Lab assay of single mutants.
Amino acid sequence: DENEERIRAFALYKGIDPEKARELWERGEINKDDEEKAWREYK
């Protein structure tokens, strides 16, 4: 689903483990601007 892809995109963008990215996502600790930037680059 799209959230999974967004988490993966963010992990790649930040160079972090996707599981770590998922934890940040679930806790609401992902910066929305960074997340959008990562998503645009990923697509």
Rank of each mutant, 00 (worst) to 15 (best):
L24M: 15
E41M: 11
E5P: 03
A38K: 04
D34Q: 05
K43V: 13
Y42D: 03
N31Q: 09
E2Q: 11
R27A: 13
R22K: 11
E19W: 08
E2N: 12
K32D: 07
R40L: 14
R27D: 04
E23M: 10
K43F: 11
R27E: 04
E29D: 09
E19G: 10
D33N: 10
R22D: 00
E5N: 06
D17A: 12
E4K: 05
Y42R: 03
G28D: 04
K43E: 10
R40Y: 13
D33V: 09
E5A: 11
W25D: 00
W25Q: 03
E4V: 07
E19P: 03
K32Q: 10
A11H: 00
L12F: 11
D33Q: 11
L24R: 02
A11Q: 02
E29L: 14
A9N: 04
L12H: 14
E41C: 15
N3S: 14
D33S: 08
N3Y: 15
E2P: 13
E4L: 10
R40H: 13
F10G: 03
G28K: 05
E36T: 05
G28T: 02
K37L: 12
I7S: 00
E2C: 15
E4G: 07
R6F: 14
A11L: 01
K37W: 08
K20Q: 14
P18S: 07
K37R: 14
G15T: 01
E35V: 15
N3I: 15
N31H: 08
R40K: 13
L12D: 13
E2D: 13
F10P: 02
K20C: 15
E41V: 08
G15Y: 01
I16L: 09
A9V: 07
A9R: 08
D1G: 12
R6A: 04
Y13F: 11
P18E: 14
R27L: 11
A21R: 00
E29M: 12
I16H: 00
E23I: 13
A38S: 11
D17P: 14
P18G: 05
E2T: 13
E29P: 01
D17Y: 03
N31I: 05
K14G: 03
F10D: 05
K43M: 13
E23F: 07
A38Q: 03
Y13Q: 04
D33L: 09
I7Q: 01
K43W: 12
E23H: 06
I7P: 00
F10H: 04
D34E: 15
Y13M: 07
E5M: 10
R27C: 10
W25Y: 14
G15I: 01
E2A: 12
W39N: 02
K14E: 06
G28N: 06
W39A: 03
E36K: 05
D1N: 12
E5V: 06
D33R: 06
E4A: 12
E36V: 06
I16W: 05
L24F: 05
G15Q: 10
W39M: 08
K14W: 15
A9Q: 05
K20R: 12
D34G: 02
Y13D: 03
E23D: 10
R8P: 01
L12W: 15
R8L: 14
E23V: 10
R40S: 10
A38I: 06
R22I: 03
E2K: 10
I30L: 06
E19M: 11
N31D: 14
W39I: 05
K14S: 11
I7L: 08
E5G: 05
R40A: 14
K43T: 13
I30Q: 01
E26P: 00
P18C: 15
I16D: 00
K14P: 00
I30E: 01
A21Y: 01
R6H: 09
A9K: 06
R27Q: 09
Y42A: 06
K43S: 11
D34R: 01
L12I: 13
E26V: 11
R8Q: 10
E23P: 00
K32S: 09
K37Q: 12
A21P: 00
E26R: 09
W25S: 02
A9H: 04
I30Y: 10
R6W: 13
G15W: 01
K14F: 15
G15D: 07
K20G: 04
K37C: 14
E23N: 06
E4H: 07
E23L: 13
R8V: 09
E29K: 07
P18Q: 12
E19Q: 12
P18D: 08
G15M: 06
I7H: 01
R27Y: 04
D1L: 12
K14A: 14
I7D: 01
I16K: 00
F10Q: 03
A38H: 03
D1M: 12
K32M: 09
G15A: 05
E29Y: 07
R22E: 02
R22V: 03
Y42M: 05
A9F: 07
N3M: 15
K32V: 10
I7R: 01
F10Y: 15
F10L: 15
E26W: 09
A38F: 10
R8E: 06
E35N: 08
R22P: 00
R6L: 11
E26S: 09
K14L: 15
G28A: 04
W39S: 02
E19A: 12
E26Q: 11
Y42P: 03
R8M: 14
N3L: 15
N31G: 08
K37Y: 06
I30C: 04
E35S: 11
G15V: 01
E23T: 08
D34P: 01
D34Y: 03
L24P: 00
K20A: 14
E35T: 10
D34N: 02
E29R: 04
F10E: 04
F10A: 05
W39K: 04
E35Y: 15
I16N: 00
R22S: 02
Y42W: 12
K20D: 10
D34K: 01
R6N: 02
I30R: 02
G28P: 00
E36A: 08
A11Y: 02
E23W: 09
E41D: 10
P18A: 10
L12R: 11
E26G: 06
N3K: 15
I16E: 00
E35A: 15
K32H: 09
E2I: 13
E26A: 11
W39G: 02
K37H: 10
